[in-house]
Simulated scan of single mutants.
Amino acid sequence: MEVEEFETSSLMGTLRASILKKENLFDKSKSRYFMRSMLACLFLTIGTAAAVYLGEAVNAIVPGGGKIAYALMFTWSLVMIVYLNSELGTSNMMYMTTAVHRKILPLKKAATILFACIFFNLVGGILASWLISHTGAFLHVTQDSFLVTTIASKLQKGPSQVFFEGIFANLIVNIAVFTTINMKEDTARILAIVFIIFIFAFLGFEHVIANFSSFSLAFFTTGGHVPGMTVIAVLNNLLFATLGNFVGGGLLLGLNYSWLNNGQSKYSD
Rank of each mutant, 00 (worst) to 15 (best):
H134D: 08
V208W: 14
A201G: 08
N170L: 03
S145W: 00
S145M: 05
L217D: 05
S213G: 01
F146M: 09
D144N: 13
F168T: 05
N174A: 10
I175R: 05
V177H: 01
T180I: 01
L171S: 05
F168S: 02
R189P: 11
F164K: 02
A201W: 02
R189Y: 00
G204N: 06
L155S: 05
L203N: 13
F178M: 10
T230M: 01
F195E: 14
I196Y: 05
Q143S: 13
F202N: 14
F205R: 04
E185D: 14
V141K: 07
V162K: 12
Q143A: 15
I181H: 06
I151D: 03
V141I: 12
A169G: 06
V194F: 02
Q156E: 14
P227R: 04
A218P: 14
L155Y: 03
V148Q: 06
S145F: 01
N211A: 11
T142R: 13
F178C: 15
T150W: 02
F195Q: 07
F163G: 07
T135P: 05
A188I: 09
V231P: 04
I167A: 00
V162D: 01
I181Y: 03
A218I: 15
A137C: 13
S160W: 11
S213A: 01
F205G: 00
S145P: 08
I190K: 04
H225K: 15
L171Q: 05
I199H: 09
T221S: 14
I232W: 09
N174M: 11
P159M: 14
T149P: 09
G228V: 09
G136A: 01
I151V: 15
T221E: 03
N211H: 15
D186W: 09
S145H: 04
I196W: 06
D186L: 12
F138C: 08
A137I: 13
M183K: 10
F146K: 10
T221Y: 03
F198A: 06
A188K: 12
S216D: 07
I167G: 01
A176R: 03
L191W: 02
F163Q: 02
G136F: 00
T142A: 13
F219H: 12
H225D: 13
F138Q: 01
V148G: 06
E165V: 13
F200S: 11
L217S: 00
S160P: 12
G224L: 02
V162P: 06
F164V: 05
V177D: 00
G136Q: 00
F178Y: 12
S160R: 10
I232A: 15
A192N: 01
I232T: 14
L203A: 15
V177K: 00
D186G: 13
A210N: 07
L155W: 03
G228T: 04
P227C: 08
A169E: 06
S214H: 10
L191M: 07
A201H: 07
T149L: 12
T179G: 07
F138G: 04
H140K: 15
F215P: 11
A210Q: 11
K184P: 08
A176K: 04
A169D: 01
S216C: 05
A192F: 01
N174L: 10
F138I: 00
G158D: 15
